[in-house]
Simulated assay, not measured.
Amino acid sequence: MGVTIRPQVGALPVRFDEDGILQVLLITSRRSRKWIIPKGNPMKRLAPHHAAAREAFEEAGAIGEIEGRSRGHYRHRKRKARRQFRCRVAVYVMTVERRVERFPERGERAVRWFTVDDARGAIRNRRLRELIARVAADLASSGRPAAGQPA
């Protein structure tokens, strides 16, 4: 019997700072405290990109415009109640317009803005690092984050 791969959705929250430097918003996982992007399971009544936006709000307090198409995916392993699952995370770019202080998972995770290079240094998952580098190159060449893209 093959291994079941569970689908997940993730948001890659980004912004350009005052100096025009692209930044990525990362959070820590609850248990291992590794730096990751906001992600979670698909939601029945929401399109995948809207579910990713909801995860960004719930886990990081991020509010903004999210792209309607995935920029790629990466895989990770998730442990739950002595079981391990493999997950495939579809990643949607979110242009963060603001962050709120009060959000459902505040106090459970650290939340921090990183430069792209620092984010890639903090993240352990190789495929996620590569995806961030590719998205950052696309956004840098356009000179702006995802705003204006179809949501």
Rank of each mutant, 00 (worst) to 15 (best):
residue 19 D to W: 02
residue 19 D to Y: 05
residue 21 I to Y: 02
residue 22 L to W: 05
residue 22 L to E: 02
residue 23 Q to G: 02
residue 23 Q to V: 06
residue 23 Q to F: 02
residue 23 Q to R: 04
residue 24 V to L: 06
residue 24 V to K: 03
residue 24 V to M: 03
residue 25 L to P: 04
residue 27 I to V: 15
residue 29 S to L: 09
residue 30 R to F: 15
residue 31 R to G: 15
residue 32 S to N: 13
residue 32 S to I: 13
residue 32 S to L: 15
residue 32 S to M: 13
residue 33 R to A: 13
residue 35 W to V: 03
residue 35 W to I: 09
residue 35 W to M: 03
residue 35 W to L: 05
residue 36 I to N: 06
residue 36 I to H: 06
residue 37 I to A: 13
residue 38 P to I: 09
residue 38 P to M: 14
residue 39 K to N: 15
residue 39 K to T: 10
residue 39 K to A: 10
residue 39 K to Y: 07
residue 40 G to V: 07
residue 40 G to A: 07
residue 41 N to Q: 09
residue 42 P to R: 10
residue 43 M to G: 00
residue 44 K to N: 04
residue 45 R to V: 05
residue 45 R to M: 01
residue 46 L to M: 04
residue 48 P to L: 08
residue 48 P to D: 06
residue 49 H to A: 05
residue 50 H to P: 01
residue 51 A to D: 00
residue 51 A to R: 01
residue 51 A to L: 04
residue 51 A to P: 03
residue 52 A to V: 05
residue 52 A to I: 03
residue 54 R to T: 08
residue 54 R to M: 10
residue 57 F to N: 01
residue 57 F to H: 08
residue 59 E to S: 07
residue 59 E to W: 05
residue 60 A to H: 05
residue 60 A to L: 04
residue 60 A to V: 13
residue 60 A to D: 07
residue 60 A to G: 14
residue 61 G to W: 11
residue 61 G to N: 10
residue 62 A to M: 05
residue 64 G to E: 05
residue 64 G to T: 13
residue 65 E to N: 07
residue 65 E to A: 11
residue 66 I to S: 02
residue 66 I to Y: 00
residue 68 G to S: 01
residue 68 G to K: 01
residue 68 G to E: 03
residue 70 S to C: 04
residue 71 R to F: 11
residue 72 G to Q: 13
residue 72 G to A: 09
residue 73 H to W: 13
residue 75 R to I: 14
residue 76 H to Q: 11
residue 76 H to S: 11
residue 77 R to P: 06
residue 77 R to K: 13
residue 79 R to V: 12
residue 80 K to I: 09
residue 80 K to V: 06
residue 82 R to Q: 11
residue 83 R to C: 09
residue 84 Q to T: 13
residue 85 F to P: 01
residue 85 F to N: 04
residue 87 C to W: 07
residue 88 R to P: 00
residue 88 R to E: 07
residue 88 R to D: 07
residue 89 V to E: 06
residue 90 A to F: 09
residue 91 V to Q: 02
residue 91 V to H: 01
residue 92 Y to P: 01
residue 93 V to M: 07
residue 93 V to P: 00
residue 94 M to V: 00
residue 96 V to C: 00
residue 97 E to G: 12
residue 97 E to P: 03
residue 99 R to P: 04
residue 100 V to C: 05
residue 100 V to D: 08
residue 101 E to A: 14
residue 101 E to K: 15
residue 102 R to I: 14
residue 103 F to I: 08
residue 103 F to P: 00
residue 103 F to V: 03
residue 103 F to D: 02
residue 104 P to T: 08
residue 107 G to Y: 14
residue 109 R to T: 08
residue 109 R to M: 10
residue 110 A to W: 11
residue 111 V to W: 00
residue 111 V to I: 02
residue 111 V to P: 00
residue 114 F to A: 05
residue 114 F to M: 06
residue 114 F to N: 09
residue 115 T to D: 01
residue 115 T to G: 08
residue 115 T to Q: 00
residue 116 V to Y: 04
residue 116 V to E: 06
residue 117 D to H: 07
residue 118 D to C: 04
residue 118 D to Y: 08
residue 120 R to W: 03
residue 121 G to H: 07
residue 121 G to E: 09
residue 122 A to L: 09
residue 122 A to I: 14
residue 123 I to T: 05
residue 123 I to F: 00
residue 124 R to Y: 12
residue 124 R to V: 15
residue 126 R to W: 13
residue 128 L to Y: 00
residue 129 R to M: 01
residue 130 E to H: 11
residue 130 E to D: 15
residue 130 E to S: 12
residue 131 L to A: 05
